[in-house]
Design a protein around this nucleic acid. Structure first.
Lengths: 169, 169
DNA sequence: ATAATGAAAGTCAAGAAAGGTCAAAGAGGT
DNA sequence: ACCTCTTTGACCTTTCTTGACTTTCATTAT
């Protein structure tokens, strides 16, 4: 099949690998013209393929001289680890288990103390935010925390994070 | 293409870095002539790129012998970084502004690319989570994002993060 | 002194040039 | 049939560029 989207994806990845520093700058219009598609197709490809969970950061600027910049962050490949983690986290996780897990991963050297600080801050803030948004039962906190945690760990460990933990909400 | 505005910005920054004392004096007309543009373009560049938030002070004088003086202020002299950030983020921040801010802080060396990846992943996940929790208006996303962002940056920059962003929810 | 002149710099709004969003339609697989 | 992933197009927002008009200041002429 090889959809247009995957051709564009491949093209962008080739550009990235050719760029010495793993950073490229493209123009949405130009790229769309090259592939003979509408510009918004480019947004689709970027939204679905160049996510933080896959190790990419994307910046863009509108207006005259606008651009899209894609940065590849090189991670020590630990796909299998992140899959195991995804399984270990499961659909839901309470705050204490999350803390223990993050602590363990830190001492295993999966990430730095600063990175751990970030993760903890995100999890705490998430709890506060759910508080503000309404009166939800405990299990929802656990489900949403699992979702967030998978995304965060996925970003650092290169996992795909398929965990559609929230699908049944 | 890299807009004219960013070329002018780069040129001014180069001048600044060459000036021993981080102060330069330009003439608007001269600069406009050098770049083959209309003089008010210079005002645009200064207004958008050499702001106090970014650590610049600009003085000018009209009339014959007029000039524009740009001073690069070294931040430690001013309020603490996290206070300024708290102010800059404000009560609410949209996704694009958040991205730009995080990008700028990364290039300023406030945190690593991996840390940035984590922050981006957290912000993306937050949006998904709010989506799941109900049908909220745009401004709530912006308020909650501001809260999360302050917490994340505060964690890394050691700020107090007053963030009473959610007080009026 | 004062008024006139001319040489700066400032403001503002219109128009152009990007990129972004969203929802509907299409394609492929179970 | 149904579900997920793609593709498209209409419409939106942001950023940049330009030009007409305004304000300020130093200098020169009265």
């Amino acid at each position: 099949m090889a959809s247009l989207a995957s051709h564009i994806e491949a093209y962008i990845k080739k550009l990235l690998s050719e760029a010495s520093n793993e950073v490229i700058r493209l123009q949405r219009r130009e790229l769309a013209r090259r592939f003979g598609c509408v510009p918004s197709q480019i947004n689709y490809v970027i939204r679905t393929r160049f996510t933080p969970e896959r190790g990419y950061i994307v910046e863009s600027q509108r207006g005259g001289g606008g651009y899209i910049r894609i940065i590849k962050v090189n991670l020590p490949l630990q796909e299998s680890l992140s899959e195991r983690l995804s399984y270990e986290i499961g659909e839901a996780i309470d705050r204490a288990r999350a803390r223990t897990l993050v602590s363990r991963l830190t001492s295993d050297g999966c990430f730095s103390t600063r990175e751990r600080l970030l993760i903890e801050a995100a999890l705490n803030a998430l709890d506060d935010i759910i508080d503000e948004l309404g009166d939800f039962p405990e299990y929802k906190y656990n489900i949403l925390r699992a979702f967030m945690l998978k995304k965060l760990l996925g970003a650092l460990l290169g996992g795909e994070c398929e965990g559609n933990a929230m699908s049944e909400l």
